[in-house]
Write a protein that binds this DNA or RNA. Structure first.
Length: 585
RNA sequence: GGCCUCGUAGUUCAAUGGAUAGAGUAGAAGUUUCCUAAACUUUAGAUACAAGUUCGAUUCUUGUCGAGGCUACCA
């Protein structure tokens, strides 16, 4: 697995310059780009220069060109120890001294040398989660939350300030349904009295509403009504709609109940967020934003970006961009989802003048919506409109098929978290790994391990791909998993505790094991991996990178025999490597 | 119908246009005087199909087949 190929980064610039100069001297041509890649195992060398592209500029045999170039590099660059040429590939071996210097430089750098993506230093706002307040979080939210939070962390690691936000869908018919059901069937009940998490408590009433609604429909049909008529005229639905009208009119009792039920839900959400390890800097509530955007529509109409149909509805024509016409305001003058999103984006830039980039973590079923949204904002002429990103992710499938709340095939977030922790407990006890810890410490560790497994399992997959999630079998603790990485990390820490050594020892004269060089190569490209992940909005890049590094480390310590304390050379080097790598897992 | 995304070992996932397509797991065979064996080593196993561009294609283009999504005056 090589999402980012291990290439000795620190010598890049030197080599690139030398190659260009070499081609100039040898063939009197200038090559604009030098292509590097890591040398494939089975061939000797650390990094490889691809000669083929040079054939565009100079006629000749790639092997001959490679050989001459290799000789030139060996002559002029002291870090080049030797070289060989296979077909059009010039493989270069670097000296141990180079790696030793490199690891020292890496150690000295803050954050392992991760550089900001660009120098503008504007901040970024990342939106994720965006739940409805009528039911608990599920597996889909877990992928959303982990992706959004992880991307926030990655961008922050590149030196930018990140604002994490969620937009909470706290208004609308769905919450009114829960409210009506509570009034009818649960008056006086509270989550505390029932011993339930607040979101579960409210979600149960949503389910109850649906049951009652179905019952009423059936009764109406039995009394001779058509199905569509019955669906529209079920008394409990009419009550919910009436409640929504009251809410919009600002009726005090309705608002009080609404606030109370939402508070219960938030309390439940916050517990889940805390366990997942995600948090937010700002919350936006739809009850505050759902009227936004209308003034912008008015302005856009004036500018001619939008047009009005005879019934008064407002549209934008995107046929030139290969899309359709899209409505942005209803004929009765009210806002729709799109209007609201336009307004909210503008509002966010107003609220936080230091941001110029918005990232939306939303499932790929809304690809079209965001394509349109971004296009509209561009046409409206906002300068930041070119920095809008939809972090689109695939659905989470179950072995039984798609998750459908109506069919009861939803995996509840809290249940899943509990199950992961339980599995971690079982396996740990079976292996007897945690003897000597207190019960409290053990429980804490089970949670860390279980959540590590879940997070890694979700994040290692390319966001845009669907995930097949088998709660029983898919989550493993062996192999390419979170616990495997955690375990390696723990071992590295253990070395750090046991071995004392001198970081400033003169390292000249040491020789390196082949696998040590491999590990150093990974450390060298760590900044690149982070930046790639930030640009691609893909934690999977870092997950896979980390796994490769950990695997290289494991392979190393199994291969190289432990030396006596009198022979510090190899041991010291190894400890330095693990020290540098340790902090980042 | 139109548009978008995805098709890689039995299975779950990798691979800036580069060399012999990598890992985990499941299968077969091994390793423990060793910083914690949740490990390591060996072995078998795949690019849906067909054209095209290229020195070179899992990657880019087109078509076919298959899976999913979007195509609301819902959010």
């Amino acid at each position: 697995m090589q999402p980012v190929k291990p290439i000795a980064m620190q010598i890049y610039a030197t080599l690139e310059k030398a190659v260009k100069q070499g081609m100039e001297e040898l063939y009197q041509i200038s090559v604009p780009i030098v292509e590097f890649q890591s040398t494939v195992k089975d061939f000797e060398g650390d990094l490889t220069i691809v000669v083929f592209p040079f054939l565009k500029y100079v006629k000749g045999n790639p092997i001959e060109i490679g050989t001459k170039l290799g000789a030139y590099l060996k002559e002029n660059i002291k870090e080049v120890e030797k070289f060989n040429v296979v077909k059009g590939f010039l493989n270069i071996s670097l000296t141990d001294i180079y790696y030793l210097n490199s690891i020292n430089k890496i150690r000295a750098q803050e954050n392992f040398g991760v550089k900001p993506m660009d120098k503008k230093e504007k901040s970024v706002m990342v939106e994720y989660s965006s739940p409805n307040t009528n039911k608990p979080l599920h597996l889909g939210h877990i992928r959303n939350n982990l992706l959004g939070y992880s991307v926030s962390q990655i961008i922050a690691a590149t030196g930018k300030k990140v604002y994490k936000t969620q937009i909470i869908n706290d208004r609308g018919i769905h919450i009114c349904k829960s409210m009506i059901a509570w009034k009818k069937f649960g008056l006086g009940q509270t989550p505390e009295k029932e011993g339930l998490k607040g979101d579960k408590f409210v979600g149960n009433f949503y389910v109850k509403f649906d049951q009652e609604y179905k019952k009423e429909i059936k009764n109406l049909i039995d009394s001779g009504l058509g199905e569509d008529e019955a669906k529209k005229n079920a008394p409990i639905l009419l009550e919910a709609q009436e409640m929504l009208r009251k809410w919009e009119a600002g009726d005090k009792d309705t608002l009080d109940l609404w606030k109370k039920m939402n508070e219960w839900v938030y309390e439940g959400f916050n517990k889940t967020y805390k366990t997942l390890g995600v948090d937010f800097d700002i919350n936006y509530f739809e009850s505050n934003t759902y009227l936004l955007g209308k003034d912008i529509v008015k302005e856009g109409l004036k500018k001619g970006v939008f047009f009005q149909k005879s019934d008064g509805s407002v549209w934008i024509d995107l046929t030139e961009d290969g899309l359709d016409e899209k409505i942005v305001q209803r004929s009765d003058g009210t806002a729709i989802y799109m209007t609201q999103d336009i307004g909210t984006a503008v509002q966010r830039i107003k609220d936080y003048t230091d941001i110029d980039t918005l990232v939306y973590t939303v499932g790929n079923e809304q690809d079209y919506h965001f394509k349109v949204l971004f296009l509209i904002l561009k046409k409206l002429g906002f300068p930041w409109a070119q920095n809008l990103y939809h972090l689109s992710y695939g659905m989470v499938d179950l072995p039984s098929g798609k998750m459908k709340s109506r069919e009861g095939t939803v995996v509840d977030a809290d249940d899943l978290i509990t199950e992961m922790t339980d599995t971690a407990r079982e396996i740990s006890q079976e292996l007897g790994k945690l003897e000597g810890y207190s019960e409290e410490e053990k429980e804490k560790l089970y949670k860390i391990i279980g959540m590590g497994a879940l997070k890694y399992y979700i994040l290692k997959v390319d966001p845009k791909k669907r995930i097949l999630f088998d709660p029983k079998e898919s989550i493993d603790f062996n192999g390419n998993t979170g616990p495997f990485i955690q375990y390696t990390y723990a071992r590295i820490q253990s070395i750090m505790r046991k071995a004392a050594f001198d970081y400033d020892k003169d390292l000249s004269g040491l020789t390196l094991h082949e696998k040590e060089r491999e590990i150093i190569k990974f450390l060298e490209i760590f900044p690149e991996a982070v930046n790639n992940a930030a640009v691609g909005l893909s934690p999977a890049i870092i997950a896979n990178y980390t796994y490769d590094l950990v695997k290289a480390y494991n392979s190393f310590y199994q291969t190289v025999p432990i030396l006596g304390s009198e022979d510090l050379s190899e041991k010291t080097m190894r400890i330095q490597i693990s020290g540098a790598g340790g902090k980042r897992f």
